[in-house]
């Protein structure tokens, strides 16, 4: 009789769509095991549909095949159920390069959409809260130290993901998927004070600020860095300072800035 370890290695092969040793797992046993595998696939199917509703909208016709392919090739390495969704987003990102789905002609922005949907999920559920009451002071001073909350992600997308998301979320009929052409955008996706996940579209200037705020910085240093980077002339500095202040107050109101 095979050792337990060997049996489990064969089970693993079976679950990953490979051919197990029939001397260890007979064809009858494989049939019986297919009940367990079928149940696992059903669970994953339901969960991934819920976690990636927009990707599901555009992959609907291939969804069943995709779930099986995912299960065979991207088994989760985390016991936390939700982390499987991270795996799934990785899998979806690889989908456009997969020969077997070549005919399907998936949109080129699928990987970015998958990344966006995972970010939404991740930010809404993970990361213990690190809010401190950012409304305790009205104005920021140059001496203040400012930092973005942990519950955020920044993405530089090649496609207009924010527009794609908006479109897919609307109940309208889905356009020809090729409608969305390359158009770079930078998104700050964050969890707000009400625990809703939202995003800001970032201009090059605001991106520079946000990028510095991720690791924390003194406000005075931030102003200075900004002026250097964008060569702001002396006479425009006061005005620019004010604009930066406004942006930061906005962030504070949303609760994403300490």
């Amino acid at each position: 009789m095979a050792k337990l370890y060997q049996i489990q290695q064969e089970i693993k092969k079976y679950f990953m769509g490979k051919t197990p040793n029939p001397k260890i797992l007979s064809p009858q046993v494989q049939k019986e095991l297919s009940i367990h595998k079928s149940l696992a696939l059903e669970k994953i199917n339901i969960t991934m549909k819920q976690c990636f509703p927009l990707c599901f909208k555009i992959l609907k016709d291939y969804w069943g095949e995709i779930i099986v392919d995912f299960y065979h090739n991207f088994p989760s390495k985390s016991a936390i159920y939700l982390q499987m969704s991270k795996n799934f987003s990785e899998y979806l990102k690889s989908l456009v390069f997969k020969m077997k789905f070549r005919k399907a002609n998936f949109p080129k922005w699928l990987n970015e959409l998958a990344e966006y949907e995972w970010a939404e999920l991740d930010l809404s559920t993970f990361h213990p809260q690190d809010f401190i009451n950012s409304e305790r002071k009205k104005d920021l001073n140059e001496g203040d130290y400012v930092k973005l909350m942990k519950a955020h992600k920044i993405f530089k997308f090649d496609y207009p993901v924010s527009k794609i998301v908006e479109h897919l979320n609307s109940q309208r009929k889905i356009y020809n998927l090729a409608f969305f052409k390359k158009q770079k955008e930078t998104l700050l996706i964050f969890r707000d004070k009400q625990d809703k996940v939202r995003y800001f579209l970032l201009s090059p200037g605001s991106y520079f600020l946000v990028d510095n705020l991720r690791y924390g910085i003194g406000l005075g240093d931030l102003y200075e860095k900004f002026m250097d980077k964008f060569n702001i002339k002396e006479k425009e500095r006061l005005d620019t300072n004010q604009k930066i202040q406004n942006l930061l107050s906005n962030f504070r109101q949303e609760g994403i800035l300490t």
Partner: peptide, 9 residues
């Protein structure tokens, strides 16, 4: 779990 893989079943 078999090895480092979780099979959700």
């Amino acid at each position: 779990r078999i090895g480092s893989h979780y099979f959700q079943e």
